[in-house]
Design a binder for these strands. Structure first.
Length: 660
RNA sequence: GCCUGGGUAGCUCAGUCGGUAGAGCAGCGCAUUCGUAAUGCGCAGGUCAAGGGUUCGAAUCCCUUCCCAGGCUCCA
């Protein structure tokens, strides 16, 4: 047999003896690579190290510390999880077990309807470590469909997968397990355990080990709430102990900055159970932050050519019949109130009401674009299990605007909108943005193809203009028009979807909105929906987590706290506070009733940007001792007037003590 | 809505086999007068989420409801 020549990623070629595998190739390149190699990629398709090479193949060796490598590790760890569970619970059925972001899961059905508890995780983890210590090889085998059905005869979920794939189903979930085709593949890592799987896997279980089982959860088979609910075990797995530690540290960090903890610790707001789930009351400190956010938003909107409107929280159902929402979204609305003059609903959105304002009189083309803005509070009956602090809540306030414009204005309007959105988000400390562009679902849409194309173009060009990285989500648009969603990246690298810009060809039609053009004829305007924060509550939560509670000075409820060293400095402390207050600074005073150290600590724990300490020297020289948040040492003897000027400047520029 | 786990003082949590509830922090009072992350002592604080059941006796066992956490599903 002739030698095999393969091409490596750098373009060089290498000739190998016939029958060589990916592992042989890695070994030929270097012993270190042979050791680090986890799987290979032939023509971009991941394969086991044991896979044979073919002449002319383009081959790449994949090591553990790569996205592909981690995915393989996670997938292989999931197999070991299933193996451990079948050892501990003989007769357990295992369903699917893919790699996911940061880890993996596996779904099980235990004999006799038994459930996992948190305590079981420890046992399972120990069993997994034993399997890894046994260093079992993962061996691939291929079978006909009939054979596959026989092998997995006692695994009903596997049988269902094999059956559906062999019938040509193209369910993504199934394809994670097996590839469509006349054969199915399986991996055996001990005589006692075999799993249906497309692979590839690490060469042996000994290559795994930097993992941790995280939690038990219920999950519907096939993600369908009408089908049985399985027991899902989630885990995380990494290529090294260091990577695992880094991940666990990041989780701990995220937990520390959980907004639900911070709102309590900082006394910002609460969710009294008397109100029912998903409804918050804002305490004074939280309300100050919120007011600052709203004031800033209003000021920017005013400057941006928006007109403010106000609409009621309650409406007759006729409105939602006109808008068409009722038939679609009734489930998400609070139930109707039947009154003698009709049926009323809490409003779940502001758009239809803004349309009524537009329609309240004849509109001229000269008025367009007409930008209506409202901090509109809406109520949506989110299902109980979906509520999550401020992030998913039942009563919330949208910074909602609807822009009515002519077709020839669409392009410019969208471009300036995008700029406006990013500019406002930057003022809140976000610097990294990405976007998603959702395009037409060909099966479900209203409006002409022409207008869809025009609007999609306008959105695309705006994204290009600002160099915003974006992904196209084909068919993801609402039926009424294409949209851009903007994600921000926070201080610890998580992304949050905040803003949205949506084209709407439906409302203008349903509300019969018109304007009189320069040609004296009636035309239909285009409507844009856009929210910048999305919801104030959610944005507030995101901000808290982004800053870990250390809000920039302009947003801090208490910007400065003045502490006197002894009570004969109390009067001067009050003078300092009054001076700051006169300049619009929010300032508190903590007089000398308990030791200074304790008062400093209290102020620090409240994350107050500036703690001022005043004693003998300061009274004499009209100075303050400045202890800035995030700074190791205090600065003594700062002239009061200098401090006032600095802090006023910082507030105006949306700065924080940490910036200096 | 579904699965699992929870709900004990304002917060964080302990409470053994079913025998009427405990700590730290916070709060209040008194003392302390102190130069940068916890001054001391004392006091008060509870329908053990709510309702029902079992029991001589329930924070503890059972049922229902509400709320919370993590998932699933959903998210106009």
């Amino acid at each position: 047999m002739a030698d095999i020549t393969v091409e490596l990623p750098d373009g060089t070629t290498r000739t190998m003896p016939p029958g060589s595998t990916v592992a042989d190739l890695a070994g030929a390149i270097g012993p270190r690579l042979r050791k680090d190699a986890l799987v290979g990629a032939i023509g971009g398709h991941l394969v086991d190290l044991a896979a044979p090479l073919g002449d002319g193949d383009q081959v790449r060796i994949v090591t553990a510390a790569s996205a592909e490598g981690r995915e393989v590790i996670r997938h292989s760890t999931a197999h070991v999880l299933a193996q451990a569970v079948t050892r501990l619970w003989p007769g357990a059925h295992y369903a699917i077990g893919p790699a996911v972001e940061n880890g993996f899961y596996y779904d099980f059905e235990l004999p006799g309807g038994e459930r996992f508890t948190d305590a079981d995780l420890e046992r399972i983890e120990a069993e997994m470590r034993a399997i890894m210590a046994e260093d079992q090889p993962f061996t691939r085998s291929e079978h006909s469909v009939e054979e596959g059905l026989r092998i997995f005869a006692d695994q009903p979920f596997k049988v269902e997968i094999i059956t559906s794939v062999s019938h040509g189903a193209d369910d993504d979930e199934d394809l994670g397990e097996v590839e469509a085709g006349p054969t199915v593949s399986a991996y055996t890592n001990s005589p006692a355990f075999r799993d249906l799987c497309r692979g590839p896997h690490v060469p042996s279980t000994g290559r795994l080990g930097h993992f941790r089982l995280m939690r038990v959860a219920g999950a519907y088979w096939r993600g369908d709430e009408n089908r049985p609910q399985l027991q899902r075990i989630y885990g995380t797995a990494w290529e090294s102990a260091a990577a695992l530690d880094a991940y666990l540290t990041q989780l701990a960090e995220a937990e520390k900055r959980d907004h639900r903890r911070l709102v309590t610790d900082l006394d910002l707001l609460s969710f009294p159970s008397e109100l029912g789930g998903g409804l918050a009351v804002w305490h004074p400190r939280g309300a100050i932050i919120r007011k600052e956010m709203e004031d800033y938003s209003r000021a920017r909107h005013l400057a941006g050519g928006y007109e403010f409107v106000v609409t009621p929280h309650l409406t007759n159902q006729r409105l939602y019949e006109t808008s068409g929402h009722l038939s679609f979204y009734k489930d998400g609305m609070y139930p109707p109130m039947e009154l003698d003059n009709g049926t009323y609903y809490m409003k779940p959105m502001n758009c239809p009401m803004h349309c009524l304002i537009y329609r309240s009189r004849a509109r001229s083309y000269r008025e367009l674009p007409l930008r209506l803005f409202e901090l509109g509070t809406v109520y949506r009956y989110e299902r109980a299990g979906t509520l999550h602090g401020l992030m998913r809540i039942r009563g919330f306030t949208q910074d909602d605007a609807h822009i009515y414009c002519r077709e020839d204005q669409l392009q410019d309007e969208i471009a300036s909108l995008l700029e406006f959105v990013m500019s406002v988000l930057r003022a809140f400390g976000f610097t990294e943005f990405t976007a998603n562009l959702s395009t037409k679902d060909p099966k479900k849409y209203v409006g002409s193809d022409e207008i869809w194309e025009k609007a999609t173009d306008a959105l695309t060009q705006a994204l290009e203009k600002f160099g915003l990285p974006y992904e196209i989500k084909k068919g993801d648009a609402a039926f009424y028009g294409p949209k851009i969603d903007i994600d921000v990246r926070d201080a610890i690298g998580r992304t949050w979807q905040l803003s949205t810009i949506q084209c709407d060809f439906n409302h203008p039609e349903r509300f019969d909105l018109e304007y009189v053009g320069s040609d004296n004829a009636r035309h239909r305007p285009i409507m844009l929906h856009r929210a910048l924060f999305g919801s104030i509550e959610r944005f507030f939560g995101v901000l808290l987590e982004h800053y870990a509670g250390n809000l920039p000075t302009w947003l801090s409820p208490e910007q400065v706290r003045v502490l006197s060293v002894r009570d004969d400095h109390d009067a001067y402390a009050e003078t300092v506070a009054a001076t700051l207050r006169d300049r619009g600074v929010r300032v508190g005073v903590d007089l000398a009733s308990e030791p200074l150290g304790g008062r400093v600590r209290t102020a620090k724990m409240a994350k107050i940007p500036y703690v001022l300490v005043v004693g003998d020297d300061d009274v004499a020289a009209r100075t303050v001792g400045v202890n800035a948040r995030g700074r190791a040492a205090a600065v003594r003897g700062v002239p009061l007037d200098d401090f006032v000027a600095d802090v006023v400047r910082e507030i105006g520029s949306h700065g924080a003590p940490e910036d200096e």
